[in-house]
C-alpha cells in the first residue's frame, strides 16, 4: 500500500478510499498539527488537494443552494464576490480562522470533518442550515450539518466516503447575519466562545426566521432554538432583539473548564456575544 497518493479526480479518490485505509488530507492544517512533537506521518494519506473540480463557490440551481466545493479554502470564502450579503457570518468566520497562512490552504469542509468543538466553520454553517454532501461506494448522500457531526472529532463519514461539498440553502428572502469569536488574544486564537446569528426577513419586514448557534461551549456546536423562536415576529430596530436573550438560554450549553476559560465564563460570554451579534444584525437590517 502506498503511503501517499495524490489524486486529481473524485472517481480516483473514491476508488482509493474503497481500497484504503487512507487518511484524507486536504489543506493539512489539522492533520500536521495533530502529529505530536513534529512526529513524522505514519498513516497512509490520500491527498485530495489536487481535485480542482471540488474547489469554488457557486449557486446550485438544482439544490437551490450555494455550493462550497469540498476544497474551498477560507481565503476563497473571503474572496467570493457573487454570494449574498447574508454570507457575512461565514465570511467573518473565514477571517478569524488562524492566520492568513491557515486561511490560504485550510478548507471549510476539512474544518467540518475535523469536528473540533472549537471549529470556526461549524457555527456559521449550522446557523445557515448547511447540509453536507458525501460521496462513497453507496452513492451520494446529503446530510444536515447538525447530524453530520456526532461528537468531539466524530462525524457520520465512513472511511470509504469523501465529503464533496457543503450546501447552503438559498431561502430566497433577505437576510442578515453575523459572527463573533472571543479569544484571549488578537490573532491565531482558539475560541473561548463563538456565536453566529442569522435573521431572515418575512414579507412584512419582521423576523420570519432566526438562527442562533454557539460554538466552543459544548462538544458539538448547538442552536439555541428557544431563543430563535422568541426572535420570530420581532422588528429589528423597533424591538430590542438583545433583550430577548435570557439567562436560561445558556442551559442549552454544556461548556467545560480548560486552559482558555472557565465553564461559567463561557456560558456568560456566549450570551453576551449573542446579544451583541443580534444588535449588530439589527443595525444592518434591510
Amino acid at each position: 500500500m502506498p503511503r501517499y497518493v495524490r489524486v486529481h479526480t473524485l472517481e480516483d479518490a473514491l476508488a482509493h478510499l474503497v481500497a484504503g485505509p487512507f487518511r484524507v488530507i486536504a489543506g493539512g492544517t489539522d492533520v500536521f498539527p495533530a502529529l505530536v512533537d513534529g512526529a513524522p506521518m505514519r498513516e497512509a494519506m490520500l491527498d485530495i488537494s489536487g481535485i480542482t473540480a471540488l474547489r469554488g463557490i457557486g449557486f446550485d440551481e438544482e439544490a437551490s443552494a450555494w455550493r462550497l466545493g469540498a476544497l474551498t479554502t477560507w481565503a476563497d470564502v473571503q474572496r467570493a464576490r457573487m454570494v449574498p450579503p447574508w454570507f457575512a457570518t461565514l465570511r467573518r468566520a473565514a477571517r478569524e480562522v488562524g492566520g492568513v497562512q491557515i486561511q490560504a490552504v485550510g478548507t471549510v469542509a476539512g474544518n467540518l470533518c475535523n469536528a473540533s468543538p472549537a471549529a470556526d466553520g461549524v457555527v456559521p454553517l449550522l446557523a445557515l442550515d448547511a447540509r453536507v454532501e458525501i460521496a462513497g461506494p453507496r452513492g451520494v448522500r446529503v446530510e444536515p450539518l447538525a447530524s453530520f457531526i456526532t461528537g468531539v472529532r466524530r462525524t457520520t463519514r465512513t472511511p470509504d466516503e469523501l465529503v464533496t461539498g457543503i450546501l447552503v440553502p438559498e431561502p430566497g428572502r433577505p437576510g442578515v447575519s453575523d459572527f463573533l469569536k472571543l479569544g484571549a488574544r488578537h490573532s491565531l486564537v482558539i475560541s473561548i466562545a463563538m456565536v453566529a446569528v442569522v435573521l431572515w426577513q418575512d414579507s412584512d419586514g419582521a423576523v420570519g426566521e432566526a438562527a442562533v448557534a454557539v460554538g466552543a461551549c459544548s462538544p458539538v456546536a448547538v442552536r439555541l432554538t428557544d431563543l430563535e423562536a422568541r426572535l420570530v415576529g420581532l422588528r429589528p430596530g423597533v424591538d430590542d432583539l438583545a433583550a430577548q436573550v435570557r439567562e436560561a438560554d445558556g442551559d442549552a450549553l454544556s461548556p467545560i473548564d480548560d486552559v482558555r476559560a472557565t465553564a461559567a465564563y463561557r456560558r456568560e460570554a456566549a450570551l453576551v456575544l449573542i446579544r451583541r451579534a443580534l444588535t449588530r444584525c439589527a443595525e444592518v437590517w434591510p
Binding site: G28, T29, V31, F32, M41, D47, V100
Partner: peptide, 27 residues
C-alpha cells in the same frame, strides 16, 4: 513549532503565504 502556530516557516506557494511545516512535500 511544526504545527502552524508560529508562522516562522512561512513561504509563498503560487504566491500565497503558507506554513511550509504543514505542506506534504509531494504536493
Amino acid at each position: 513549532c511544526d504545527a502552524g502556530d508560529c508562522g516562522a516557516c512561512t513561504v509563498l506557494i503560487d504566491g500565497a503565504p503558507v506554513c511550509a511545516c504543514m505542506v506534504p512535500a509531494g504536493r
